[in-house]
Amino acid sequence: MRGLAAVYRKELADHLGSRRFIILFILILFAGLSSVYVAAQSIRDQVSSSQNVFLLMFTTPSGPLPPFFTFISFLGPLVGLALAFDSINGEQNRGTLSRLLAQPIYRDAVVNGKFLAALTTVAIMLASIVVIVSALGIWILAIIPSTEELLRVIAFLIVCILYVGFWLALATTFSVLLRNTATAALAGIASWIFFTFFVSMIADSIANAVSSANTALDPNAILQTTQLRDMLARVSPNTLFQEATIAILMPQVRTLGPILLQDVIGLVPNPLPLAQSLLLVWPQVVGLLALMAICFAIAYIRFMTQEIRSL
């Protein structure tokens, strides 16, 4: 534990003082501020007495600007990759890793300490941005968020940290597997593009290929195809993140899959209580956590079993 604490302290100090961190912080802060500012302006014009005005700030797209949570879904991976793509191989290339491993610490303290420090950095960064952005929204709209809204924002924040945590773990894995930092960064960016753009396309084509063409008019077949497509798309952490944040930030969302007309008849369109929304996104949250754990496990095992000469 002593070694872990030492590595953690040093890495956290490094991250918080690094240019990388400052640039990303400013980037996301400005993206967040502009999206919330524009959203708040349009909410003020349109909505008068709607519930959950505070949450609408994070989810209302206005004009060309996507809502705040979409910004996070795009920029979150960038943060994760930027903070961790060179965490192990950077030290390897500078040669500091062998000096580090010659100190009386367990080997896993290095990889654990680095990952936890990066995760803490992400948590600090996202929490402060959400607070600043909320303050701007409150100032423009002159509304006070309810306790439930606050809790939903906190839940949203936790999901964001998990999501970026997955990208951190993925970047750490690349930094253990690939000796060259540039290659590791490129591999990270490639997987970012793959998960963001291609997974939904691939899921679509697979689902269409599986369902035969002549069942196009059969409602059951259409339902099955849609469900298959959704399940395949959930391989991507982006899909999981978007589904989870939509359900958390929009209490009126009742289901994340296709709804049949017969289910909607007689439905009272009331917002769900927080506990029910959380229940709805539980699989998504666990999925994100599992993806992060798998990625980190690969990095951990690989790092622990690597021959020192190759480190």
Binding site: G95, R99, A102, Q103
Partner: peptide, 16 residues
């Protein structure tokens, strides 16, 4: 760990 506590090692490329 016991060995590393008592032995100082300076690698070939002094890396700081």
């Amino acid at each position: 760990i016991e060995v590393k506590r008592r032995v100082g090692y300076l690698p070939e490329r002094v890396a700081l």
